[in-house]
């Protein structure tokens, strides 16, 4: 439950920070969530993976759908993949950054408390 909550808060915070800040705000949001909610151990990683991965995945997917896959298909050609491939790569990178971020936040909390 706490993991799911952390994931949701992570997604929401990352989205809001992302409106103004560059891509690294995804890690910043995850760090904060890890530190404040403190899901603990592997749950921290999963929370970040889910929250940030879904956030980037859903944002990319909706941009791609609204665009009828025009751009992602072209960019996909550059990276030898499809439009869906680009959505998945984006989600995976988001998930990785989020998971690592929450995990580090969680560890830092452990270290200071």
């Amino acid at each position: 439950m706490r993991t799911l909550l952390a994931a949701l808060i992570n997604a929401a915070l990352a989205y809001v920070l992302g409106l103004w800040l560059p891509y690294w705000s995804l890690s910043l949001a995850a760090l904060l969530v890890g530190f404040l909610i403190h899901p603990g151990g592997w749950r921290a990683f999963v929370a970040g993976l889910l929250g940030a991965g879904l956030l980037w995945g859903i944002l990319a997917w909706s941009a791609d759908s609204a665009n009828a896959h025009i751009l992602a298909t072209r960019i996909g050609t550059l990276f030898s993949t499809s439009a869906t491939g680009m959505v998945l790569i984006t989600a995976a990178l988001g998930g990785l950054l989020g998971g690592l971020g929450v995990l580090v936040g969680d560890r830092v909390r452990n270290a200071v408390s």
Partner: peptide, 20 residues
């Protein structure tokens, strides 16, 4: 820079102009 480029909030996804 792949982080910037793939971020749906600032990367290439922002150039995917909605058809409508």
């Amino acid at each position: 820079p792949m982080g910037r480029f793939l971020s749906p909030q600032e990367g290439f996804w922002r150039n995917a102009e909605p058809v409508a």
